[in-house]
Design a binder for these strands. Structure first.
Lengths: 257, 257
DNA sequence: TTTCTATTTGGTAAAATTTACACAATAAAG
DNA sequence: CTTTATTGTGTAAATTTTACCAAATAGAAA
């Protein structure tokens, strides 16, 4: 939504294109070099941050809606996406905290207060993860977007604190079952690099010697016959994910620890 | 919904009480004596079975809606309930497979075809589990309800095949993390009984001697100083769940295998 | 009373996995 | 050729899982 006209049309006619009463909020995590961040957006008319969200087109699948909404904010197409929970308790949106007048004025739109948007809405939660160094958060007419360190997230609007907590928990649980880390590393990576990904996302130390042994033992990554030059130190071997094994492990329900 | 008047009012005015575009479908599993079943319902106007479902009141939480819908079918209040996934792909409901005329006629209602119900609707999936010997499935005006053995489920309407598959997968995964079995056994039970619960739900053999050792070792169940008389055999000790330990394990994320 | 049958349960050895650490290997700069 | 920083192999100890044997027991049958 880049122009006031588009926004006005969305407010007036959006219910024809989108499913009313259903929204989607995405916890977009970003990893890079030992840091874990999350993308928060701030509506220009409301004090405080929240997760970037959107509505679902009547013609698209939920997965595709999540992909589109994430792309609107990150510009990226190829990141890891996963539905984790749906939120729908009454009172999750505090209508009285919103300043409709201010929003309408700032965005240059009308009828906002009486639109299809102003009704009980449930929200489907997806989380996504990508390398944040590849992303320049995209703001639009009504909101702007920014990376926050995961341990410096301010109290959020609505029920989004809960969403962050639950999405992070889901991400951590699924890190061992799904090839999440593959989206955060170049195709060929060193053991030290993948080790950092796991430690950072899980938020805890993992033995540097035992950790890669396990990944290799389980066959989820495999050693290549190449090394990388890293200056005045011993050159580390490169590894890559073995997606076949990963998918097979997914089916049989194998796990790591 | 027991009378035609109630149903007519639901069709005409339901959108004031319920959230439109959002439904809930519940996979209600039933265990008893080595058997796992699932509750299916059949609309009188549509050929084929589906999961029992309903709509969410604007005033209730999702968990409470699930509880209400499950109670309508089972009469039970105290069963294990868990949200597992939301389904919302376009085409998940085949409108053209429905015979509106027939339904309206049979149920004695009108305006059905043009009602708020006839629009793209996403569905939140919960699963539930209880002892099926305690339940007499309740039918109502427009549908009747029946237990099916889990391996004799016929092809279902809409995307409900997918729902059954995913809910069963979620149930099996969570059996080790949540006190699900506690809802399927009397307060005091024997090792043989709980062993049967796990084997039946997981659909695989578990060593009868090692299995209880683990549960006791982890402290999730504890031995009582009582035995039960089971006829011409050695009397087994009784056990009960240690809910404190269970909740603690939940927090710390401990698991079984 | 003794024997028999069916079931529960304690115990234990072997196999597999996880954890903890020591130190050798290596690349390049001084 | 010594120094520095980092990678990677190996191995022993601890823990957990797996596979079974055989003893205990309750009542029925002999």
């Amino acid at each position: 939504m880049d122009t006031a006209e588009e926004l006005q049309d969305f407010i007036t006619n959006g219910h024809k294109t989108f499913i009313p009463h259903v929204s989607m909020d995405n916890a977009i995590f970003g990893y890079h070099d030992h840091q874990l961040k999350i993308l928060l957006s701030q509506y220009k008319a409301i004090e405080g941050y929240c997760l970037p969200g959107g509505y679902i087109k009547r013609t698209e699948t939920l997965d595709r809606a999540a992909k589109r909404i994430v792309k609107e904010r990150t510009g990226l197409d190829d990141l890891y996406l996963q539905q984790y929970k749906t939120f729908g308790d009454p009172g999750r949106i505090k209508w009285n905290e919103m300043d409709f007048e201010k929003f309408s004025e700032m965005a240059g739109v009308k009828y906002f207060k009486d639109s299809w948007l102003m009704d009980h809405t449930i929200s489907i939660g997806y989380y996504a993860i990508t390398d944040f160094s590849l992303v320049t958060p995209k703001s639009d007419l009504s909101s702007y977007c920014e990376w926050f360190n995961i341990d410096e997230v301010p109290p959020l609007l609505y029920d989004h604190d809960d969403m962050v907590k639950e999405s992070l928990q889901a991400l951590r649980q699924q890190l061992y079952y799904y090839p999440i880390a593959a989206k955060l590393l170049p195709e060929k990576f060193t053991l030290t690099e993948i080790h950092a990904v796991y430690e950072t996302i899980l938020g805890k130390k993992l033995d540097i010697r035992n950790f890669p042994k396990k990944l290799v033992f389980l066959g989820l990554i495999k050693k290549l016959n190449e090394k990388r030059n890293i200056g005045p130190h011993r050159a580390p071997y490169l590894y890559k994910f073995d997606m076949k094994k990963y998918n097979k492990a997914l089916e049989t329900g194998t796990t790591l620890t």
